[in-house]
């Protein structure tokens, strides 16, 4: 009984920490998105609200809270209000299986530094991110606007073409880890045996697929402003719009956390065991390594957004089916051969 209570409390503490971490990271991701866009365009960016504009994200949220919530007359009201919450739900539940550190021992009990050590963690992430597209498709369909509908359709078409190359790239990773458990995938990448080093092509296809999955430029066709006036969220306002916004950035964090876990060695700090630090410092360094890698990838996401123009729809399909899919298959064969040799 005492054990049971202990694990419940630990789980609650982890939920609170991770949920708040996501929210704060999202708000500052928006801030950095604006700052980095400003720097690339030789501007200054937000610098009025608070020191260096650091309170800007909170001002934005407050503004959105005070806005009127408009639902179009022809909208399907139930689905229209449900869609943003599906998006949020997916964005927040996916973190549950991403390990951000090794197991720690507290009061004689082992606690993994992740919400749930699920043995099919990768499948769980794939399943949930596939639900994520429903949010966008529902939002597009239920708004009763042609622009939104086009955005929703594009999103599902994009999803189908990129989920496949994503799945095959992940298969290459699984050959090495022999497990779907995220913790074991990370442990399999000890030292410099990072999957990004072993299978660079798979890394590339997965990163591209991650960009497409998170609807970031150059694959942001569902919300292409010049063509679709904002796409699936054209008819959303107030907090429902904010929910989509939040989900988009939370998805970006998931995307980079997944890339780190699958390809960049997760929380592994190469050869940290040989430095001879105390266990606590080692774990601290490893957790730090995870967040540094994630931060670098998030910067990369933003950096790409402000550098590369959007793909045309047919180009997107061409790349998805004719380039990424064969490449990920090739990578799978390469991974299999490499695994045979290394055994």
């Amino acid at each position: 009984m005492n054990d049971f209570l202990f694990y419940i409390i630990v789980a609650l503490v982890k939920i609170v920490i991770i949920a708040n971490m996501i929210l704060i990271t999202v708000s500052y991701l928006v801030y950095f998105e604006r700052k980095i866009s400003a720097w690339t365009q030789n501007r200054v960016g937000p610098n009025r609200v608070g020191y260096l504009g650091l309170l800007q994200p909170f001002a934005d949220v407050l503004k959105l809270l005070l806005k009127e919530d408009i639902v179009p007359k022809v909208a399907n009201k139930f689905i229209h209000s449900m869609a943003p919450f599906i998006a949020l739900f997916v964005a927040f539940t996916t973190y549950a299986v991403i390990p951000f550190g090794p197991s720690i021992t507290l009061w004689g009990k082992e606690i993994p530094l992740m919400m749930a050590d699920v043995n099919i963690g990768i499948l769980y992430v794939l399943a949930l991110t596939s639900i994520g597209v429903y949010a966008i498709t529902f939002a597009g369909w239920s708004s009763g606007s042609k622009y939104s509908l086009l955005g929703g359709i594009r999103s599902s078409a994009q999803m189908i073409s990129y989920e496949i190359s994503m799945g095959f790239s992940i298969a290459g990773v699984l050959i090495f880890s022999q497990s779907l458990r995220p913790m074991e995938i990370v442990i399999a990448q000890h030292g410099w045996m990072w999957n990004a080093v072993l299978q660079p092509v798979g890394f590339l296809t997965f990163v591209v697929a991650a960009f497409a999955e998170t609807n970031r430029l150059p694959f942001d066709l569902p919300e292409a402003e010049p063509e679709l006036v904002g796409g699936y969220h054209t008819e959303y306002s107030s907090m429902k719009f904010a929910a989509f916004f939040l989900a988009e950035y939370a998805n970006m964090i998931i995307g980079s956390a997944m890339i780190v876990t699958l390809y960049l060695g997760g929380w592994q700090f190469p050869y940290v065991e040989t430095f001879g630090f105390s266990p606590a410092v080692t774990i601290g360094l490893q957790v730090g390594a995870f967040f540094v890698k994630m931060g670098a990838l998030l910067f990369f996401f933003i950096w790409v957004r402000w550098s590369i123009p959007r793909f045309r729809y047919d180009q997107l399909m061409n790349i998805g089916w004719k380039v990424m899919f064969p490449l990920s298959l090739l990578n799978l064969i390469w991974a299999a051969i490499l695994a045979m040799i290394m055994k």
Binding site: T40, W303, S307
Partner: peptide
């Protein structure tokens, strides 16, 4: 090439 171009711009002084 494109990414390095934008990275270079990030360190230029701003005109604002």
């Amino acid at each position: 090439k494109g990414l390095s171009q934008t990275l270079k711009q990030m360190f230029q002084p701003s005109f604002t």
